[in-house]
Nucleic acid binder design. Structure first.
Length: 368
DNA sequence: GAACCGTGGAG
DNA sequence: TCTCCAAGGTT
């Protein structure tokens, strides 16, 4: 790795001081953010950082408020039921975060006397806490001199140094650069200032360089390479998958199952489904079950594949047990269905004839 | 290193 | 409609 100090266009102390002054002049006020110069509450900082992983601030705010209202303290969250937390997380995505959130809360409650470890290393050992989150909590909640390098910070550093190393290979250098810049005073404010700079000024597209505290020293700006920093690898093609979801209805109730703890939508409530694959096997139904294919297919795009999900309504015979065909589950009154991941929410809307609200997400079904 | 893991807003 | 991608972590 090239010399960190040589890569920087100015002394670390100068760059940090300018960034902190910029932060003090007008940073964002966010529900989890402490006053400038103060330490954050560890529970709030940790909860917000986990929610913010690969997720926009606008999407997180209502979930953060909801979680804080339902579980105001770490101890209360640690005592919560799995299903309640998964349902509260529904719609936010990356559901392993919710499982790890609970595991982490319970670990802190049981193994750390209810208090978060106050070092980067101690935090890093907790479930769902990786290098970024550990550094962010250590800096913001405990005032540790830690390098919280997220996507924003990678971007501002790649531009500041005009580093052409493509991601993710650039990450180690970014971490070294970030650590070199963190001041001994106000490391938490510095972490949030660097993130704000990336989010508000040094944006991926159309950055506002005239508002940047580093505009006169930025090497990518001087070189005219801003739009190419950080360099990203070409995107992979998304495969397409198909499957069928079953709306099993009886006496105003619908059969809901719980998805396996690991993998896609792990631990979430869902409608029974066939396998999702490029060429799924035909759906086999128990004899006597009346099937009504709907004239709609739910379309949903996940991170690494897109999905067309045919929706079939089923009316099981009075004595039939859906668990036999679809595994363990529960009858839920139709109007009380709640806490579904978005793709299942689309299935529900299609089955209940509310697909008008999902325009663009429903497509004509292929011939059954 | 690379694959896996959601969703929604912006342009 | 389509592409990009956001306060990443785990395996």
């Amino acid at each position: 790795m090239p010399d960190v100090l040589a890569a920087l266009p100015a002394a670390p102390a100068v760059l940090a001081a300018r960034l902190l002054a910029w932060y003090d002049a007008g940073h964002r006020a966010l529900p989890w953010r402490p006053e400038a110069g103060a330490l954050g509450d560890p529970y709030r900082v940790w909860l917000s950082e986990v929610m913010l992983q690969q997720t926009t601030v606008a999407a997180v705010i209502p979930y953060f408020e909801k979680f804080l209202a339902s579980w105001p303290t770490l101890a209360e969250l640690a005592a919560a039921e799995d299903a309640a937390v998964m349902a509260a997380w529904a719609g936010l995505g990356y559901y392993s975060r919710a499982r790890n959130l609970l595991a982490c809360a319970r670990a802190v409650a049981a193994e750390h006397g209810g208090r978060f470890p106050d070092t980067e290393e101690g935090l890093r050992a907790l479930p769902g806490v990786g290098p970024y989150t550990a550094a962010a909590v250590a800096a913001i909640a405990f005032g540790r001199r830690a390098a919280a390098v997220d996507g924003n910070v990678e971007r501002i550093l790649a531009r500041l140094t005009d580093d052409a190393t493509p991601l993710p290979a650039f990450k180690p250098a970014a971490r070294a650069l970030g650590l070199a810049l963190v001041p001994a005073e106000r490391p938490g404010d510095f972490a949030q200032a660097a993130i704000d700079l990336g989010a508000l000024v040094c944006r991926p597209r159309e950055p506002d360089c005239l508002l940047c505290p580093w505009r006169d020293v930025c090497r990518a700006r001087a070189a005219g390479t801003i739009s190419q920093r950080p360099l990203r690898p070409p995107k992979a093609e998304k495969p397409h998958r198909r499957g069928t979801a079953f709306w099993v209805e009886r006496d105003g109730c619908v059969w809901l199952v719980r998805r396996p703890a690991k993998g896609l939508l792990g631990g979430m409530a869902a409608f029974p489904c066939t396998e999702w694959s490029a060429d799924p096997p035909p759906a086999a139904l128990p004899p006597g079950w009346a099937a009504t294919p709907l004239n709609a297919t739910v379309r949903h795009v996940f991170t690494h594949f897109s999905l067309d999900l045919a929706v079939v309504k089923l009316s099981p015979p009075p004595q039939a047990d859906p668990a036999t065909a679809f595994g363990p589950g529960a009858w839920v009154p139709m109007e009380k269905i709640d806490g579904l991941p978005t793709v299942m929410e689309k299935v529900r809307a299609a089955a209940m004839g509310k697909n008008k609200t999902l325009r663009g997400d429903s497509v004509p079904s292929r011939t059954p």
